[in-house]
Amino acid sequence: MPTMSHHPMILRRSLVRSIAVALSLGVAVTSGPVLAQEGGQPSKAAVEEAKQRFQRGRELYEENDFQGALVEIRRAYDLAPTYRLLFDIGQIYYQLQDYPNALKTFTKFLQDGRNEIPQQQRDDVQREIDKLKGRVGTLRVTTNRLEAEISVDDVPVGKAPLSEPVLVRPGRRKITATLSGFSPTTKTVEIAGLETLDVNLELGEASTLTSTPPSGETGGASTQTPAVEEKKSVLPTVMWITTGGLAAATTVTGILALSASSSQSTNLETFPTTAETLESGASKAKTMALVTDILLGATVVAAAVSVYVTVSSSSKSSPQKTGEVRLGVGPGSLSVMGTF
């Protein structure tokens, strides 16, 4: 077996030779130490599919599609496990700079291959393992809730309690714990190579409010969050405040309109006066009267809506009763009709 190297061209040739050996000695046979101990003997159909996937993996690797090559060769390993494929998988992980998985895969390669691996290759792989250990950090993750789902950088790594520490690349890592019925918790840590960090994640209970169904109902209980209940109780108050504000504005503009009208009457009775003064006074009086009419209409509408919202909020126990507001607009008139 050639000496392992991580220069792209040398690695590519090494992978092709490794594939050829694996196909002829590993995947194509169904007995002997080539197969993983726990894998059993693959069927003939599984072996054939593994060959095809292996071939696709080689082609993808030649095209520098390392991610695609990894998926295909891992599928081949799942179909017909052989320690020789672990060597190839480990090299692709290394090429992808996924040092934790490269370290785990090379370690398993030595464990599964045992004496079947030539001594020179064993020494080469062991040197790479020693180098990879300096590019990997270790997280010991604990949580206060059993069965909590633990993920690192949004990738699930297992459920609490974890059976072993988590190997990660150096840098900033995000660790999250989630469990149904509890508020998720996340911590971000910075870890260096060869460093071991303890991370404890505390999950708090999620707050929920369940409302009791009215007597006589046998259906499922409905749930209302405090925010929804608060909105329902606050809305009538907001509407009445709005109505009051509009009414006050209507009163003010009405007084100003009367004052402008009075001033205009005074101008008409004053002699001498100018056309400009009369025109200005008439325009002001007309404008204030129009604004007053608009605000009066808005006040009436707001009052009707406020009554509707208030009645609706107080009738939650009688959902079959619904209110209705109808507005009528005509030349110089505004009408509101409602049933509650």
Rank of each mutant, 00 (worst) to 15 (best):
T82Y: 02
E229Y: 01
E195C: 07
L296S: 15
I19W: 10
K133C: 07
K51Q: 05
I241R: 11
T237G: 08
R326E: 00
T310E: 02
T270N: 08
L278I: 06
V27Q: 12
S163E: 13
F271Q: 07
S24G: 14
P214M: 01
T208R: 12
V228H: 01
E164M: 10
L86Q: 09
R127Y: 01
S215P: 13
A303R: 06
Q95S: 09
I92E: 04
L86G: 00
P33R: 11
L15D: 07
S315D: 04
S333N: 08
A36W: 01
I150L: 01
N115A: 15
M288S: 12
R17H: 06
A285E: 00
L246P: 09
L235E: 03
P8C: 04
S314C: 14
L132G: 07
G158S: 13
T250D: 08
Q126M: 13
Q67P: 04
L11F: 04
K231L: 11
A282E: 15
S306I: 07
V166A: 08
Y94T: 02
T188S: 11
P214Y: 00
T218L: 07
S180F: 04
A257E: 04
K321Y: 11
M337L: 11
D198N: 14
S215Q: 14
V301D: 10
K232N: 04
L258Y: 02
S262K: 15
G338P: 08
Q264L: 14
L327T: 06
V21L: 13
T322N: 05
D154S: 13
P184I: 11
K284F: 02
D78F: 07
K44S: 15
T277V: 15
V141R: 10
K174Q: 10
L258T: 09
S318Y: 15
R135Q: 12
L23R: 05
T188K: 15
A76I: 08
Y83F: 12
I191G: 08
L209C: 13
